[in-house]
Design a protein around this nucleic acid. Structure first.
Lengths: 117, 117
DNA sequence: CTGTATCCTAGCTGATACTG
DNA sequence: CAGTATCAGCTAGGATACAG
């Protein structure tokens, strides 16, 4: 068949998407980021409630990974008992567009599947 | 940017993101979609090469799920031997923005991590 | 070429309980 | 409140072989 159309290829874009997913993939990460993102700052137990179905173990693990990837910042507040605050870093905030788009798409998708049954 | 107008909460947005991720999560789906998306149409073996690291078993499984979710269309061509073409459906094309954003972000992220070491 | 069918293992994940 | 520890089941995912 004619492969003359695609001589150049799109390896770069596909790899870029892959790179992005390296950091964001998994069942929970994007939901966690969106929780922190929409509220600006969020505590452990808040996120636990926001992200439906996640366990404390998973949340803890995912937050660590996001922190390692410099997407979120963890701040321990000197209260009694201890509270911990999570914020997006400046770098994490660059994901805002993607989160917004996903929210938009999710709303349309929810409509699509409920109407389509 | 911060739309903290609503003090009550952002459950709706977070749920919407969650809904979107229901369909898109997993290690491979978004990469597969981006492959089909950038080339308009793509065959099984093409995607196998595009998406680095995926096995035929996984690809087969993920394609089925994407088809069930009406994001892609599968067309068997009457050639010898059989070839199968995958395209985004009109619905699948609504993901284009998200894919583009992810590609953009992925490129920046690649730069960020290579400079940061 | 486009898949299916097995087999097998690492690690993801939930449930529950526990610590500081 | 913010996690950690442990157990046990499930599934993602690779390797290989095979079928239409």
């Amino acid at each position: 068949m004619a492969d003359n159309v695609c001589l150049v290829g799109h390896k770069k874009e596909i790899m870029a998407v892959h790179d992005a997913m390296d950091v964001l993939s998994g069942k929970w990460k994007i939901s966690i980021i969106s929780s922190i993102c929409y509220y600006n700052e969020r505590r452990f137990s808040d996120i636990l409630k926001d992200v439906h179905g996640i366990s404390n173990k998973m949340l803890s693990k995912e937050l660590k990974e996001l922190e390692m990837n410099k997407l979120i910042k963890r701040t321990v507040l000197d209260t009694q008992p201890v509270t911990v605050q999570y914020n997006l870093t400046e770098y994490g905030k660059t994901l805002q567009t993607i989160i917004d788009d996903l929210a938009d798409w999710g709303i349309k998708h929810r409509k699509a599947i409920t109407e389509d049954l």
